[in-house]
Simulated assay, not measured.
Amino acid sequence: MGIRDAMPLLARHEGVWDGTYVHYNAAGEKIDAHRSRLLCRIDDDARNPYHQTNFYSWADGRTEVRDFPAEYRDSRIWWNNDLITGWAAEVALDDKKRTLMLYWQRTGTPDLYLYEMIQLSDDGAHRCRTWHSIRGGMIETRTAIEERLVTRDWRTYEGESTVRVD
């Protein structure tokens, strides 16, 4: 069984997503915001059947690219790279089939971990994501992400590294 069959909700996330990340500190004060383009790729035959590349752009001209290849096993995708270690799974209790849950730690920072919830709209064209970053049992930051699907055909965007900042 391939990842598309094993994780049909994850398969609905395949494509190119444009969005906005807004980060808040523990007091609820906005500390950062930036635009994003995410390439979410699925290839059942690959060593890493899920592969996500994030392109970030800030209004001041800064850019950053982060790459997240993932393995599939035990009904989850798993990351273990220079940036993060963790997993993502479909939430079986969600009978609407809208919710993915992620857990990860930044590599080299074992006292900081993050939980993320991703909600996909019923039409598959929008999603919202929330992160809770926790250090020493206390909330450190919250992140709110809103995204819209640009295209399911991520191959047409392969290698494109810029996101328009309005």
Score class of each variant (00 low, 15 high):
E140K: 08
E160A: 04
T63I: 01
W131P: 00
E140V: 02
R98E: 01
H126V: 01
R66I: 00
K96T: 14
V65K: 07
I77N: 06
E71R: 14
T99M: 14
W79F: 15
L93W: 08
R135E: 15
N54W: 05
T85L: 03
W87M: 06
G61L: 04
T109V: 09
D67K: 03
D44F: 14
W87K: 08
S121H: 04
M138P: 03
G108F: 07
E90P: 07
R152Y: 10
L39R: 09
E71M: 09
G108W: 07
A46G: 15
G136K: 06
C128Q: 01
I31R: 09
T141N: 12
E158W: 05
E146N: 05
D82S: 12
K96C: 13
D111W: 10
M101N: 12
A46L: 13
A92N: 10
M1K: 11
N80G: 08
W87I: 05
Y56Q: 08
G15W: 08
G108I: 03
G159Q: 12
A59I: 04
R47M: 10
T162H: 12
E14I: 04
E64M: 05
N48D: 15
E14Q: 12
D18T: 05
E140H: 14
W78L: 14
M7A: 12
L120R: 01
L9M: 07
T53L: 03
M7R: 12
G28C: 07
T143D: 03
T143E: 09
G19R: 00
V16L: 02
N81G: 15
R47W: 05
T85I: 02
A27N: 12
R47A: 15
N48H: 11
R4Q: 15
V65M: 06
Y157G: 00
M117G: 13
V150P: 00
A33C: 05
E29L: 08
D122E: 15
V150D: 02
Y103W: 11
I145E: 00
P69W: 13
R47Y: 05
D44Y: 14
M117V: 12
V150N: 02
Y56V: 00
Y113E: 06
V65Q: 10
W17N: 02
R106A: 13
W131A: 02
D82Q: 08
R62P: 01
S75H: 14
L39E: 08
V165F: 09
A33Q: 14
F68E: 03
A88M: 15
I3S: 12
A144P: 02
Y103I: 00
L100D: 01
D18Y: 09
V150I: 07
A92D: 11
A26L: 08
R76I: 04
T109F: 13
L9W: 06
R164Q: 11
I31Y: 10
L112G: 02
